[in-house]
Design a protein around this nucleic acid. Structure first.
Lengths: 306, 306
DNA sequence: TCGTTTTTGTAAATCGTTTTACTAACCAAT
DNA sequence: ATTGGTTAGTAAAACGATTTACAAAAACGA
């Protein structure tokens, strides 16, 4: 277009105070440059870090994000999917509750660009960004075994999603590799509401564990008060290691050993994959799984010192 | 409408797999049941807590939220406002960077429902949800004075926004009320990038402060490493108190004394006010400021023990 | 200057709803 | 059977952009 008409148009834009209407635009173009993000539970630090990674990439490409918190509730998850569909989002990034297979399947059938994050849904071939969780569980356990712990507890929220199942598998595998049997009563994988009681009882039983692995940051948040209450000192009386990043973990006494995930990068990756799919550059990527490496950060809480 | 036609319609909805299109609906109705949230910097814990409060209320009323992170950058803030306008949001909740008066003014002029959060913009009469920050600063300082501290440092990010200015005012007022003079060299309110160096120098100077107040959680995050590095122990060598909630603060050694804001509730309140304005029930509320009370949670880091 | 290409102006259809209007059909009660 | 009132059905305009089409005008090279 000619450059003086261009100028004329720009003048008109300011003189008429024209403001584009993305809703009308979206209606006609069938494209909203908006993606929907549904996280299983925003209370996990992982979720917020991942969201930032997603947002930063989207911001680069002038896409926008609507973040929804399913609150571990499949009903809510479904409601949000419907809402986001109604809003004509161009694609989804979902940390699935795992309890909505039909829903996910429909999304695939309707050819919505979709990326799973954190958790795999085995029955579907959807590109997924996840951690090598078996390895994460294995390394955490191995580290404790190396400190001569034999009675290692594994405390987790319900072992319903791949993430937790795999971490547990890693735990089991490490114990087996070292010839240590797994003891049922050192394992808890259940409702967060009972976690404190069960863990408390575990510590008060005879022959209590000398080390504990927390399945994620929310578990840690329940476990620490129990230790304080029972006046158990780390790491001498109980060694501790937790999955997920803990803010200020180096300022705890003792500093907390963690197995961290590159959450931010995982978010970036997921956004990348999704935008590629949306823009048709990556049909072939469907079904691919991107695995990230866990990072064991050894601090004081897991170091044997007797 | 007759109940058999209603049934007929419902059947058609499923047989045709009808899915409503909120974009078309929004276009016609000039209403998207979506609000825009712009936070000055999502890295503050306050911002994420506040967002949750907002979201929960919005979810109740079937409104949706788009959260944007201005990253302390007025340019970005403006860009996001334009984007959200284009998306035809029904209203805004903004934690203002404070450096965009014209932008805010336009929003008011264009009669957008708007609520400010956390920070006041003095020159505009916009309903604002905020903390009694002067009181917060006063109480924090008074508490340290009560522990017989006289050399109290005040470390903050730039004193450009009302929140920080007021906390500082409270600090000054408490010192004055107790007849203690304020010493310029105990005060830092500047760029986060220089914070560590400046604070480090402050501690190494002769006659260093015996207590420090951190202006917010991000400041704390810079201050703690300095203490660790200089091997300064709390609270004997330096008492510490920080604004904002710190996760796990009771598990620090020493447990960190905090001045907390009811962030979640403040978010709820802001959302409430905004939805009332959107639905025309509260024209009169314009200009009102809702102030919340700070909560001083005394823990070990501020308790004198020599 | 002619013919060709590019730029400009104008108009109409479309996206999927809501809104308004109007007519037709139905039901109950007088 | 007539009246009034409700419910059904149909149609068309509107929301604010994009898209397509076509005609008119301008710019260009030979």
């Amino acid at each position: 277009m000619g450059k003086d008409t261009k100028k004329r148009i720009e003048e008109a834009i300011i003189s008429l105070e024209y403001q584009p209407n993305a809703v009308a635009r979206g209606l006609k173009q069938k494209k909203t440059t908006t993606i929907g993000i549904i996280v299983a539970n925003i209370l996990h630090r992982f979720s917020t870090q991942v969201s930032r990674g997603i947002e930063d990439i989207c911001h680069q490409y002038e896409y926008h994000t609507i973040i929804c918190n399913a609150d571990d509730d499949p009903e809510k998850e479904k409601k949000y999917v419907d809402m986001l569909k109604a809003k004509q989002v161009d694609g989804f990034i979902i940390i699935p509750t795992g309890l909505n297979e039909g829903l996910y399947k429909d999304l695939v059938k309707e050819r919505y660009p979709l990326i799973f994050l954190d958790r795999k849904v085995e029955t579907l071939s959807v590109p997924t960004v996840t951690l090598r969780n078996v390895k994460a569980g294995y390394e955490a356990t191995l580290h404790l075994l190396d400190q001569n712990h034999e009675n290692i507890a594994f405390i987790s929220s319900p072992l319903t999603v791949s993430t937790r199942k795999e971490r547990y598998q890693g735990y089991v595998k490490a114990l087996e590799d070292k010839g240590a049997g797994i003891k049922e009563n050192y394992v808890f994988g259940g409702d967060m509401n009972h976690l404190k009681d069960k863990f408390s009882a575990m510590l008060e039983a005879k022959d209590p564990p000398t080390a504990v692995i927390c399945g994620n940051d929310r578990v840690l948040k329940s476990v620490l008060p129990v230790l304080k209450q029972q006046n158990i000192s780390m790491p001498d009386e109980l060694a501790l290691i937790t999955f997920d990043e803990v803010e200020f973990s180096e300022f705890f006494t003792p500093a907390i050993t963690t197995v961290e995930q590159p959450a931010y990068e995982m978010g970036e990756k997921a956004a990348d994959l999704l935008l590629q799919r949306i823009n048709g550059k990556a049909e072939q990527a469907v079904g691919e799984t991107q695995e990230f490496e866990p990072k064991l950060k050894i601090r004081e809480s897991s170091l044997y010192k007797r």
